[in-house]
Every structure is written in structure tokens, then in C-alpha cells.
Amino acid sequence: MALLFLDTSGPRCAALVRRPGRDDVVAEEVLGRGHDSRLAPIVQTVLEQAGIAPADLARVAVAVGPGSFTGVRVGVAFARGLALSLDIPSVGINTLDALAASAPDTPGLVVAAEDVKRGEVIWRLFADGAPLGAPDRAAAADAVAAIAGMANGAPVSSAGTGAPLIASQSIMDTGVRIFDLVRAADLGEAADPAAAPATPFYARPPDAKLPGGVDPWA
């Protein structure tokens, strides 16, 4: 029985198949947009390369963001459609968790940070793979201060598209910008479907104002 992992949360459109005791099979394309067009053919390709049928899947895991709102929904809708029609569990993997798992093994703490535009990052700090708190969206300078406070002098290495925005004396950019599909699939394999549903994780609420310009989420 096999695991399918999907990532459409950023420019990459990727699928990985993991079968017990065998090498993972990966198919990926780097797209600016158009994940809705390419994802299903890529999944079909990776299943064929792995020599399995859709009915051989025991679980589907998907990157739920933070990332492109539309991209994440493409992957999540597809994953949930597979889960529904194959009667298998689906799990969602947060891209920050996948990024932290993809950073090189260095002593100390790891911060995963994604650039969410408008000078802001969404970040989460990890110690030995375990998160220290929930993801937080903040102005880059505020994130740096918050991370320094939590690190309390310990070295911090960073990963993700937001890493250049928070690079500082105490935060070392590892240069990892995108999570590793194999590491993310490890998380997908271990995740509890009840605790990690395939539900999009959005970095921001919808851009919509109430009449009179009132921000409904303020």
C-alpha cells in the first residue's frame, strides 16, 4: 500500500509516491501558474512510473500552505477528491513544518519563514523538529525580535523564502528556499489524519472590506 504526497503550494507542481521498502518516485515541474492543468497528469505519470494503480494508494498527503492561496486549493481539492473516491485518509502538511524538516542538521534552533509580501513573513520556530508555538505572521523586523527573544542567545538557522528578510546576526540563512519532498512525505506518513486534516492554511484572511472600508478581520 502506497503513499501519495502532493505539493502545489508554490511555483513547484510535484507528486511523490512512496511504496514500502522501495525508492520513492517523484515527478515535478516548476510552473509559475497553471497547477490546475498540470497536477493530474503529473500524478498519473508518477503512479505509472511507480507501477501502481490509484486503488493501491493507502493515504494521500498534501502541502496545505502557507503558500499560494489558489495553488494550495488546487492540491487540497485534488487530494480530498482522491481520498473521497478511494475511501482513504487524507492528511495536510504545513509548509513551515516541511521546511524545518528540510533544513540541514545544525545545532540549535530552526526557523521556517515564508515571504508573504507587504514586508511580512509567516514564521514558526522549531527545536529538534518540534515546533515552539504556532505560525505567526509579522513584519520582518518584529519577527526577528520575537525569534531572538525565544532563542535566548541560542543559534538559529533559517529556511524558506522569508529567510532573506529575517537574516540577522543571530539568524543564519541556510539557503534552503523550498522544502524537500522526501522529508515532507516522511511527515505525511507519520501524521495523524484527525490532528492534521487536509485543510488549507492561509497566511492572511481574504482581502475584503465591509461597507465603509471596515476590516472584518481586524
Binding site: 493530474a40 500524478v43 481539492a77 485534488f78 477528491g81 473516491s85 478511494l86
Partner: peptide, 9 residues
Amino acid sequence: MTAKAVALA
């Protein structure tokens, strides 16, 4: 995308 998943499965 949901339809594509059902079709593929």
C-alpha cells in the same frame, strides 16, 4: 480538481 481526482482514481 475534485472531478479530476475522481476521474483519475
